[in-house]
C-alpha cells in the first residue's frame, strides 16, 4: 500500500543534527506533555486575562467533577468526562493517572521534571536552528517557494488518496506542517511558558501583556500543547501510511528509499 511506484535507490535524507534533535524532542515532549498535565491538574481551570476569575467569570475551560462524574466545561458548554476527565479511578482528577508523570498527584515532582525537559527542549531548538541554518536545511527543506505553493493542492489530493511521494526533499504539506511546528508551535510554546514565570514577567512585562495576560498565556500554552499532540497523531498516521520501516530508517540512519522517478529530485 505504501509503495505506489517501484522503489528507487537509497538517498540521504536527514542530517545528523536533524536526527539527533528529532529524538531529543520526541523524548522531551513526551515528558513535557505528561508533566504538563500533572501541573494542570493542580488547578484544572483555564482563564483569559491577567488573573483567574474567582469573583467574576473569565473561565475558558474547567475540568471538574459533580459527585463521581467528571464534567468538562468549555466556554460554558458542558460535556461528560467519560470516566477519563474529571473523575477516574475513584478520585476527582482532571487528567487520569496514566496521563500524568508522576502518576499520583505530585505537583512538585511534575514541576522538577517539566522544567528540566523545558531546558533540554530549548537548548535542542537552539542547536537545531544553528545547525539547520548552517547546513541550509532550514531554507532548502522548510521554506515554501512558489513551486511548492503551486504543488500544494496536488499534494493534498495525493495524501487524501493515500498516494505518497518518496523523495529526498520534503513535499509542500511536509514543509507546511514541519514549518508550523518548528517556527510557530515550538517558539510559541516557549514564549507562553516564559510568560507564566513571575521572574520573567518582571523583567519582560511585554511578553505576558502581548499574549493577553499571564492566565491567557497559560491557556495558550495548553492549547499549543494540544496542537502539538494533534501534530504527533497525524505524524504517526503519516509514518504508518508512507511506510514505517523506510521512514524509521531515515530518521534513525539518515538513509531513505526514494521512489524510482523521484531519485533525481534533490
Amino acid at each position: 500500500m505504501s509503495r505506489n511506484t517501484p522503489p528507487g535507490p537509497l538517498v540521504r535524507r536527514h542530517t545528523r543534527v536533524t536526527r539527533v534533535t528529532h529524538w531529543i524532542w520526541a523524548l522531551s515532549l513526551f515528558f513535557l506533555l505528561l508533566t504538563g498535565l500533572q501541573i494542570f491538574n493542580a488547578h484544572p481551570v483555564l482563564y483569559w486575562g491577567d488573573q483567574s476569575g474567582f469573583g467574576f467569570d473569565n473561565t475558558v475551560l474547567r475540568i471538574g467533577a459533580v459527585d463521581d462524574r467528571g464534567v468538562v466545561e468549555l466556554f460554558g458548554w458542558r460535556a461528560g468526562g467519560m470516566g477519563v476527565l474529571g473523575y477516574s479511578g475513584g478520585a476527582v482528577r482532571a487528567f487520569p493517572p496514566w496521563a500524568t508523570i508522576p502518576s499520583g498527584t505530585d505537583l512538585a515532582t511534575g514541576r522538577v521534571i517539566h522544567f528540566f525537559f523545558a531546558w533540554v527542549f530549548v537548548v535542542t531548538l537552539l542547536v537545531w536552528a544553528v545547525g539547520a541554518l548552517l547546513s541550509g536545511h532550514l531554507v532548502r527543506d522548510l521554506v515554501m517557494d512558489r513551486h511548492h505553493w503551486r504543488g500544494l493542492a496536488r499534494d493534498v489530493r495525493d495524501h487524501v488518496r493515500g498516494r505518497f511521494r518518496h523523495a529526498a526533499r520534503y513535499g509542500p504539506l511536509q514543509r507546511l506542517s514541519y514549518g508550523l511546528v518548528l517556527f510557530v508551535l515550538f517558539p510559541m510554546m516557549i514564549l507562553t511558558g516564559l510568560a507564566m514565570s513571575p521572574g520573567v514577567n518582571a523583567a519582560l512585562p511585554w511578553l505576558s501583556e502581548g499574549l493577553g495576560g499571564r492566565q491567557s498565556a497559560r491557556t495558550l500554552h495548553f492549547v499549543l500543547a494540544a496542537g502539538l499532540l494533534g501534530f504527533f497523531v497525524v505524524h504517526m498516521v503519516m509514518v504508518v501510511l508512507a511506510g514505517p520501516l523506510n521512514e524509521m530508517r531515515a530518521i534513525v540512519t539518515g538513509w531513505y528509499r526514494a521512489d524510482a522517478q523521484e531519485a533525481g529530485d534533490v
Binding site: 493542580a42 488547578h43 481551570v45 491577567d50 488573573q51 483567574s52 505537583l107 514541576r111 507564566m196 499571564r214
Partner: peptide, 8 residues
C-alpha cells in the same frame, strides 16, 4: 501567582 497555576 500561585504555584498551583492561578493568579489574583
Amino acid at each position: 501567582d500561585c504555584v498551583e497555576g492561578w493568579s489574583c
